[in-house]
Amino acid sequence: MKNTYKSRLPGIVFVIGALLVPLASQAETAEEKGLAIAMEYDKRDSGFLDLTAKMTMTLRNRQGNETTRFIKFKTLEVPGDGDKSMSIFNTPADIKGTAMLTFSHKLDPDDQWLYLPALKRVKRISSKNKSGPFMGSEFAFEDLGSQEYEKYAHKYLRDEVIDGMDSFVVERVPQYKYTGYTRQEVWFDKKEYRLIKIVFYDRKNSLLKTLTYSDYNKYIDQYWRAGKMYVENHQTQKSTTLLWDDIVFKTGLSKRDFDKNSLKRAR
């Protein structure tokens, strides 16, 4: 009996092995599947070279009072590293001409400079301030930074239909230092791998805010960009709407458009 069993074992292993091979993709772990989704999102967005846009940010407090900021934004894709970007503040009027230059990195701290036009001073600032509010809004600096997949550990959670779109729901845990989040739940639509919604959990793992992307447009037949980002803070009841206009890809920007000299000229 023992002998018979032994002699048959390799055969059984072979049969099971043969069954497993074509099923390998289905047997991937939730982590592998989550990572694969994030990498596909990253891949579909790579090669955009550069982008310029205008942002209108409307801040709304608990009482519903609104205040608006206009920001010019440009970014340069850096292969193998995080993107370079510049934000130029147009309103409120007292900070007109203030501009921020960021060299983002995948896991290393970003390099960041702030230009203060009243003093003509370019100030290197710490990029540790990931979790702080951007311009007094409900967006944190880390929400608006470049979203390379290496910045997070991913885990596929489930499929879900959201706004009529078949979506993947992926949990991601920031791997960079000084994040304000324990985790995020991200909805990617299955067809185009676009961000549909992100739910953020604070350092105590309590529900913090929900960011919803909408009004998507496709640019140069390839790149999807949301025209509207709406973030609602569930703890403070404040919200911010970010509208993107005049989005233009491949405008021919170079690294010279992202240095301390161009920061001083930015308007």
Partner: peptide, 12 residues
Amino acid sequence: YTFYDIYESGTD
């Protein structure tokens, strides 16, 4: 030396 986003208040 800067303490950022103290107690998640946004204050530095």
